[in-house]
Amino acid sequence: MRAIIYTSLLLFSALSIASKDVLTFKSSKDEARYYQLIEQLRCPKCLNQSIADSNAGISEDLRNIVYEKINQGHSNEAIKQFLKQRYGDFILYQPEVGGANLILWFGPVIVMLIVATVVVMRLRKKASGAGKGELTDEQQKQVEQLLKQSGRHPSVTTDKNEDKGSPL
C-alpha cells in the first residue's frame, strides 16, 4: 500500500514538472540573454522584484514578451526600449544615463562634493582664525575700551612713554 502511495506521489510530481512550459531558444546565447534580461527588468506591479522573481500576472506576460522578442531576433536594447515606452524608466533596474536621469546618476556625487567643499572651507577658516579668537566687532571695541581704561592698551602705553619726553 505504502509503495503505491509513494509511486503515485512520484508520478504526480513528475507530471507537475512536465506541465510547466519549457522554453526553447534558437541558441544558448539567446537563452542566456533571456535570463539576463528578465533579471534586469522590474515588475511594474510589485515593489522591488524583477520580472524573473515575481509571480504577478503582468510579470508572466512580460517574460513571455521578452521570450517572443528574443526568438524574433530583437536586440536587448530594442526590447528595453519597447518596454520603456509602455512602463517608463520604472521598468529598468538600471536607468539610462541621460535626460532627467542625470540627477539620479550624478546628484548624490554633486551633493557629496558640495558638502565636502563646505566642510573643507569651514575647517580652513577655523584653522586660520585659531589664534585670533572669535570676537565680534562690538566685543573687540569693548575690549579696547576696557584696556584703555585700565591703562594697559598699547596706544596708552606709547602715549605715556611719549609724555615722559626726552631726558635731554
Partner: peptide, 13 residues
Amino acid sequence: PKGYIAIDMGITA
C-alpha cells in the same frame, strides 16, 4: 487572453 493589448497600454493589473 494573453495580455498583449494590456502591455501595449502599459497596464499593470
